[in-house]
Simulated assay, not measured.
Amino acid sequence: MGWIKRYIWFHNNRQPKEMGASEVEPFLSSLATQHGVSASTQNQGLCALVFLCKAAVV
């Protein structure tokens, strides 16, 4: 849940259903460049966003 909140905040509180793949890359890149997280931490964030997308489809 924390990753999803960070993703929404990063995009100025836009609804996830309004965003797509083009918003994911800048978010993940910012984790590395601005927050200095490791690749495995970025992957954790990506997995949370994949879960969000799959849950929205069901």
Results as ranks from 00 to 15, higher is better:
G45Q: 07
F10L: 05
L31S: 03
L52R: 01
H35K: 14
E23I: 04
K5H: 11
G20T: 13
A56D: 13
H11R: 03
G2N: 10
A56F: 06
L52D: 03
F10W: 07
H35D: 11
L52E: 06
A21P: 09
A56W: 09
E25L: 13
E23K: 03
V58T: 08
L52A: 06
W3Y: 09
K5A: 11
L46N: 01
G36W: 05
I4F: 00
V50E: 12
W9R: 10
Q42I: 13
F10Y: 14
R14K: 15
F51C: 00
F27T: 08
E18V: 00
Y7T: 06
G36V: 07
L46R: 10
A55R: 14
E23N: 11
E25M: 12
F10C: 01
F51K: 09
S22T: 12
V37N: 04
M19C: 08
G36K: 09
F27E: 09
N43F: 01
H35R: 15
A39Q: 12
V58A: 10
F27G: 07
C47W: 05
L49H: 06
F51R: 07
F10P: 01
C47T: 08
C47E: 11
F27Q: 07
Q42G: 04
I8L: 09
F10I: 03
W3I: 00
M1V: 04
H11D: 07
V58I: 11
M19T: 06
R14N: 12
F27V: 09
F27S: 05
E23A: 09
H35G: 00
M1R: 04
N43T: 08
P16F: 03
M19W: 03
G2H: 10
Q15K: 12
S40N: 13
Q44T: 11
A56E: 14
E23C: 04
L46S: 02
P26S: 15
Q44H: 10
L49Q: 07
S38R: 05
L52V: 05
N13D: 12
P16T: 06
Y7N: 01
T33V: 15
K5E: 14
L28I: 13
G36R: 07
G45H: 15
K5L: 11
